[in-house]
């Protein structure tokens, strides 16, 4: 088993919590993991990404080579497009459709969504709206993770168990909100 994942978004959107959950699930499965993160200046509202690699074989590079990512998980539609050169031909893009506009020259949203829509394997959903409508406003990122579950090739139960392990310290309410969010995401894929 091998899955190379690019997680991306804007600083502060919570891509690292998605990475933590996937990492926990992979570790519970005794898989090899490498996850390169970006800390520091770019976290101040700039574009951020994390390379997450999981495999049943030892992993050498911390970074994913171009054209080799199996999945791009993006909290933001323009950020999903930024990393397309890394996507394998049969790779999947799982993205939020809600633009995060904090720059003056943000592209036309319709054009963005149109470009995304022409990709062969894409799941594009408005996770912010879904999170609000379903009473889990703080778990939009986990909805996205639920939508990515099939593409990641990780069992649903394993992700659920990882959520319990990762959020356990924060109390039952937070755990159940995130498990609910995971289920909502799965239905969207």
């Amino acid at each position: 088993m091998k899955c190379d994942i690019i997680l991306c978004g804007v600083g502060g959107q919570g891509i690292l919590s998605i990475a933590t959950i996937i990492g926990q699930a992979a570790m519970d499965e005794n898989l090899y993991i490498k996850q390169a993160e970006v800390h520091g200046m770019s976290q101040r509202g700039g574009d951020v990404q994390s390379n997450l690699r999981i495999s049943s074989e030892p992993i050498a590079s911390d970074l994913i080579a171009k054209g080799r990512a199996d999945v791009i998980i993006s909290m933001e539609p323009m950020e999903a497009l930024r990393y397309l050169p890394y996507l394998a031909n049969d790779g999947w893009v799982i993205t939020s459709t809600a633009p995060f506009v904090n720059i003056p020259d943000y592209p036309d949203t319709a054009q963005l969504l149109d470009t995304l829509g022409r990709l062969p394997h894409v799941v594009a959903i408005d996770i912010e709206q879904l999170a609000k409508d379903n009473g889990v406003p703080r778990s939009a990122n986990v909805i996205l993770l639920g939508a990515a579950q099939k593409a990641l090739g990780i069992d649903y139960d394993k992700l659920e168990a990882a959520i319990r392990a990762v959020f356990g310290r924060k109390g039952d309410d937070i755990v159940s909100a995130n498990i609910k969010a995971l289920g909502i995401g799965r239905q969207q894929a």
């Binding site: 101040r44 700039g46 574009d47 054209g67």
Partner: peptide, 26 residues
């Protein structure tokens, strides 16, 4: 390498013209 004739590659080049830099800010 990334196959230049794949649908993703053509989308990637179309996307490259759309994507704007997003520098960090206060």
């Amino acid at each position: 390498s990334h196959c230049p004739s794949s649908p993703c590659a053509s989308e990637a080049s179309a996307a490259a013209t759309l994507v704007a830099p997003r520098p960090p800010q206060l």
